[in-house]
C-alpha cells in the first residue's frame, strides 16, 4: 500500500502511471474517493496536477466489459472440435499458400539438377587429395553428408571445401556458416579450418560462423567437446552451451549462451536479437538471396531490430520491419530498395 506522502512529489505522468490513481478514476469507490479527496485537501498545490492527470485518464478510459461465459463457450467448443479434427491425419491442401514459396520451389529445381550433374560428373577416378567444394548460393541452404557420416548443414552463401581420398584425415575448410554433427571417431579427430582458427573435435555437434566479409567469427558448441586452435597456436577448450567469439583484432572471448538461438537457422529459422540494421541487412541478403540498398543508409544503419523469421517470405519480412520502423520499399527482381521515412 502506498502511503499518501509518496504522492507529494508526483508529476502528472506519475499519477497517470499509478495504478491506484487510475483505479480511482476507472472504478471509484468510497475508500478511494476519500483517499484522494483527503490527499488534495492536504496538498492543495497538487490540485492542478491531479486534475490534469485525471483528465488524461478520463479521456483514455474505456469500460470494456468482460466477455461473458455464454459468449465465448461456443467458440471454445468449436475450437476443441477443430483440435480433434486436426489430430487426424488430413491432406495438406495449403502446400503452397503463397507465391514466394512457389518461387522457392522453382529455384530449388535447377539447384538440385545442378547438384546431381556435379555428382555424376565426379564419378571419374578420384585422385589422392582431390579437392571438392560445396558452394551454397545466397538464399539457399544445403545439407551434406561426408564420407565418414558427418552431417553438415551449410547456411546461405557458404563454401565447404574438403579433400577426398585421404582416408586418415578428416579435415574440411569452411568459409561462411555451417552446423556440424560429427560422427564419433576417437582415433581420427575432425578438423574444421577457417581463416582465423581451426576447430578440433572427436564427435559432437557445433556451429561455426566465419564469413569472409565479416571480420568477426564465432563457434557455438551444442554438445560434446571441441578445442579451438587459434592462429597463435593457442588451444582453447569449449564446453557445451558455450560460445567462442573472435573479433577483428583476433581477441577472443568465451561466454555461456543458449545454442538454439545460434543454430536454429538449420531448421529454417532466422533469429535476430537486437541487431543493428547494418549487420541485419547482410544476413537478410544472404538468407533470401537478394540485394538490398538503402539510400540514406548512414542515418539508419544503427537502428536495432529483434525478429524471428520462419517461413515468412521476403515481402512479409519487410512488412514486419515496417511495423517497427516506417519505410517504403520496392522490389525489382532480386534488388530491393528501402526508403526510410526518417
Amino acid at each position: 500500500m502506498k502511503r499518501e506522502s509518496n504522492y507529494n512529489n508526483f508529476g502528472y505522468e506519475d499519477f497517470v502511471e499509478d495504478e491506484k490513481f487510475r483505479n480511482w478514476i476507472f472504478s471509484p469507490d468510497e475508500e478511494s474517493q476519500f483517499f484522494w479527496e483527503t490527499f488534495i485537501k492536504n496538498n492543495p498545490n497538487k490540485k492542478g496536477t491531479v486534475q490534469i492527470a485525471r483528465e488524461i485518464v478520463e479521456s483514455i478510459h474505456l469500460e470494456e466489459k468482460p466477455i461473458s461465459r455464454e459468449e465465448y463457450i461456443p467458440s471454445l467448443t468449436i475450437l476443441k472440435h477443430k483440435i480433434i479434427k486436426q489430430n487426424k491425419p488430413e491432406k495438406n491442401i495449403y502446400l503452397f499458400p503463397n507465391w514466394w514459396n512457389k518461387i522457392a520451389v522453382i529455384l530449388l529445381i535447377p539447384f538440385i539438377t545442378i547438384s546431381i550433374y556435379f555428382y555424376f560428373s565426379r564419378q571419374n577416378p578420384v585422385q589422392e587429395g582431390q579437392k571438392t567444394q560445396y558452394i551454397v548460393p545466397p538464399g539457399q541452404k544445403s545439407n551434406v553428408i561426408l564420407a565418414d557420416g558427418t552431417s553438415v548443414w551449410l547456411n546461405s552463401g557458404s563454401t565447404l571445401t574438403y579433400f577426398i581420398g585421404n582416408k586418415l584425415d578428416r579435415k574440411v575448410h569452411l568459409e561462411g556458416e555451417a552446423f556440424f554433427d560429427v560422427t564419433k571417431d576417437k582415433k581420427r579427430p575432425f578438423l574444421v579450418e577457417t581463416d582465423k582458427y581451426t576447430v578440433k573435435v572427436y564427435g559432437t555437434s557445433f556451429n561455426v560462423r566465419a564469413f569472409k566479409e565479416q571480420v568477426t567469427s564465432e563457434i557455438i558448441l551444442e554438445e560434446g567437446a571441441v578445442s579451438v586452435i587459434t592462429g597463435k597456436n593457442e588451444e582453447i577448450k569449449l564446453k557445451p552451451n558455450q560460445r567462442f567469439y573472435i573479433n577483428e583484432e583476433n581477441k577472443y572471448q568465451v561466454s555461456h549462451i543458449d545454442p538454439e538461438y545460434y543454430t536454429c537457422w538449420k531448421d529454417n529459422i532466422l533469429r535476430v536479437n537486437n541487431e543493428e540494421l547494418q549487420h541485419l541487412i547482410v544476413r537478410l541478403e544472404r538468407w533470401y538471396g537478394v540485394s538490398i540498398s538503402i539510400p540514406n543508409f548512414e542515418k539508419v544503419k544503427n537502428l536495432r531490430y529483434t525478429l524471428t523469421i520462419k517461413t515468412e517470405s521476403c515481402r512479409e519480412m519487410l512488412e514486419l520491419m515496417r511495423l517497427v520502423t516506417p519505410f517504403t520499399y520496392t522490389i525489382k527482381g532480386e534488388n530491393i530498395t528501402i526508403n526510410y521515412d526518417i
Binding site: 502528472y12 505522468e13 490534469i52 483528465e55 488524461i56 479521456s59
Partner: peptide
C-alpha cells in the same frame, strides 16, 4: 511521455 504531454497540452 510525449503522448501524455500531448494530451495534457490539449486539455
Amino acid at each position: 511521455s510525449r503522448a501524455l504531454h500531448s494530451l495534457k497540452e490539449d486539455f
